[in-house]
């Protein structure tokens, strides 16, 4: 299958062969190529440099460039090389965690990191408060500081089993096993239909025999 009317893949820094990425993830080669179609559209939306920067990520999430604490947090975890940009291999490996067939253990790990904003190995009360305040500012929910403190008291009395004021990895695993809906954000059913959502990958494929 030839490649035509598209920017050469060598112009995408961090581009990795779909066969190699498929072997490291739960995605098939075709699915990796379909993800490349999505990656191309996001990475070329503001600066056509073959990488996704924070602004492009926010634009893809919200259709606007508004800054958002939660989107920033996801972006930082996708940006594993800490360069302020996401390359194609980062993108595929990070989305892999969100695949419906990935073991819960990996999803629990990722979600723990999501909430452990300062990377101390603990989810601390001040981090959770900061996120609650950010949530209120993006929604129409209005809660008094007293109510926020009550919610934090209740949450930490449930989750922080040893009552040391912070949630460690084992406490988090225990807490989400009792509250499985908290992991809903960690699974994207879209990833099962990615080749249907981006069928144009077939025209841009660089792999001779597409394995589905």
């Amino acid at each position: 299958m030839g490649c035509f009317h598209s920017k050469p893949r060598r112009q995408y820094p961090g581009y990795e062969d779909p066969i190699s990425l498929a072997s490291q993830t739960t995605f098939s080669v075709s699915e990796v190529e379909a993800l490349f179609e999505l990656f191309k559209s996001i990475s070329g939306s503001v600066i056509d440099d073959g990488l996704i920067n924070k602004e492009e990520f926010q634009l893809a999430l919200f259709k606007s460039k508004k800054d958002n604490l939660f989107a920033n947090r996801i972006f930082d975890l996708f940006d594993v090389k800490k360069r302020g940009v996401i390359d194609f291999a980062d993108f595929v490996r990070a989305l892999n965690v969100f695949h419906p067939s990935i073991p819960m253990e990996e999803k629990i790990d990722f979600s723990f990191k999501l909430y452990d904003m300062d990377n101390t190995g603990f989810i601390e009360r001040n981090e959770v408060k900061q996120m609650l305040v950010a949530l209120l500012s993006e929604s129409e929910m209005r809660l008094s500081d007293e109510t926020i403190e009550t919610i934090l008291d209740k949450t930490f009395s449930d989750a922080d089993v040893n009552q040391d004021g912070k949630i460690d990895r084992a406490e988090w695993e225990n807490f989400v096993s009792r509250n499985p809906s908290l992991l809903k954000i960690m699974t994207l059913p879209y990833l099962k239909d990615i080749t249907t959502t981006f069928p144009s990958f077939v025209f841009h494929s660089e792999v001779d025999d597409i394995v589905t």
Partner: peptide, 25 residues
């Protein structure tokens, strides 16, 4: 509702955590 007293259940409602939006054309 018990969920309204769970800070993480509230936080996970943020649109910033909804990566499904990346797939909406």
């Amino acid at each position: 509702k018990p969920e309204s007293m769970n800070a993480f259940a509230l936080i996970s409602r943020s649109q910033g955590f909804n990566l499904g939006n990346l797939f909406e054309k």
